[in-house]
Design a protein around this nucleic acid. Structure first.
Lengths: 142, 142
DNA sequence: TATTGTTATACTCTATAACTATA
DNA sequence: TATAGTTATAGAGTATAACAATA
C-alpha cells in the first residue's frame, strides 16, 4: 500500500474517540474501581444495576460479558460489603435476583459521578462544541 | 437531590462516548487481541510501537501503564512470535530498545485495521455528522 | 433433559521485591 | 548510589468443567 490514504470520516472519528479514552492514564474504569476499593467488574455491575431494578445473575453475566461462574464471586464480594443483595425469584426458584441495597444505591451515585466526570479533552471544548457532540452522539446511539 | 438535574453538556457528551465504547460486547481491545492470539497488552504495545520506531522497555511500561516487570513477559511473548525484537542501545548498555520486525509491522497493520474499524453506532451516522464529529474531536485532542 | 447458580481447578495477568549489570 | 531490565513469587481475575437444585 505504501503511503496510506486518509481514512474515511467514520474511521477517523472512531480513532479519535479511541484516543480520548486511551489518553487517560490509568484508564477510567480501573481508576474509579480502585478509588472505591472495587474490581473493574464491580463497577460494570454498578453501572448496569440501577436503583430499584432486579436482575438475574445470568442476565448480569450477559451484560458485563463474562462467564456465569465468574458472577458468583463478583456478587459475593459486593454482597459482603452490603452494597447489593441476592433475592429469591418468585417465578423460578433456581434464579437469584440481584438488587442494590440502600447503601449500594448511595455508593452507586458517587461511583457514577466519578465515572461520568468528563476528561480534560471533553471539558476543554467550547459549550457549542459540547452541545454539538451531544447531538451527534445521541443520533449515534439512537 | 431527588429528581436529578440534567447534567451539563460536557458530562452528557462523555456519558455517550462511554456508551459508544461499552455497548460493544466484547469490548474492542480484548476482542481484537483474542482475534490475533495476543493479550490486550500486546495490542497496546502494537498501538504505541510505530514501524521504524525504537522504544526503551521502560518507556513502553509508562505508555501502556503497567509495571516494568510485566513488560518483560509481554515483550517475551511478542518476540517469541517474531513480531518485535530487542536491540541494544548504543548509548546505554543497560537499556534495550524494542522495535517491530518486518513481520510485526505487517501484522500491526492488520491489527490496527480491526481496532479502528468503526462500530455500528459511528458507522450509521450521516457523512455530515461523521465529519462534524471528526472536527470536534480534533479540537478536543489538540 | 435443560437451565441457574455454585464449586473446584487451572491458567493468565499483574504488582512487589530481590537480583544483575550497568551507570 | 541509582537505574534498566530480569526473575521469583504471590494475589487477583478469568474460563472450563462438574455438580446440586429446580424446571
Amino acid at each position: 500500500m505504501g503511503v496510506r490514504a486518509k481514512a474515511d470520516p467514520a474511521t477517523e472519528a472512531w480513532k479519535m474517540v479511541f484516543e480520548v479514552i486511551t489518553s487517560e492514564r490509568p484508564l477510567r474504569i480501573p481508576r474509579v474501581a480502585a478509588e472505591f476499593g472495587m474490581s473493574p467488574m464491580g463497577v460494570h455491575v454498578f453501572r448496569i444495576l440501577e436503583p430499584g431494578a432486579e436482575l438475574p445473575m445470568s442476565a448480569l453475566a450477559g451484560s458485563v460479558g463474562c462467564d456465569a461462574s465468574n458472577v458468583t464471586g463478583i456478587v459475593d464480594r459486593l454482597e459482603a460489603r452490603g452494597l447489593i443483595e441476592r433475592r429469591d425469584s418468585p417465578a423460578d426458584r433456581r434464579v437469584k435476583l440481584i438488587a442494590l441495597t440502600e447503601e449500594g444505591a448511595r455508593l452507586r451515585e458517587q461511583v457514577m459521578d466519578r465515572l461520568y466526570e468528563p476528561p480534560a479533552a471533553i471539558a476543554r471544548l467550547s459549550a457549542a462544541d459540547q452541545r454539538a457532540l451531544c447531538d451527534i452522539l445521541a443520533r449515534a446511539l439512537a
